[in-house]
């Protein structure tokens, strides 16, 4: 029961956060710099998630190995082919190969 109530409270809080901008900013004309900042939410948030997941492991530096090398493969293929599906497949194959190689 406690777990259910914790999930419920977290769900309500998260829903309020998800709704915040959509409701508060709806038809308002935003200053150009704020509008430009909002257009950068995607790249900035994704880069933050990638850096946190790739370079850190529960707050400490991740030891250099398969994660970094496979990520470099994915980045290289993404720059080269400019398609996300191919980049993802290349990264996954590289990661599996590196793990099998014992890295």
């Amino acid at each position: 029961m406690t777990a259910f109530l914790i999930f419920l409270a977290a769900g309500i809080g998260t829903f309020a956060i998800r709704l915040s901008g959509v409701l508060l900013l709806r038809d308002r004309e935003l200053p150009p710099r704020i509008a430009k900042g909002l257009s950068l939410v995607g790249p900035a948030a994704m880069a933050a998630i990638v850096a946190n997941a790739l370079l850190l492991d529960e707050g400490a530096w991740r030891g250099f190995g398969a994660w970094h090398l496979a990520a470099l493969v994915a980045i290289g293929v993404a720059v080269w082919r400019r398609t996300s599906g191919v980049a993802m497949a290349a990264g996954a194959v590289a990661f599996a190969a590196l793990l099998l190689a014992g890295l």
Partner: peptide
């Protein structure tokens, strides 16, 4: 866990 950076690299970089 590697799927997380891989997923977002694939969307972000191209």
């Amino acid at each position: 866990g590697f799927i997380v950076p891989l997923m977002f690299i694939s969307v972000l970089v191209p």
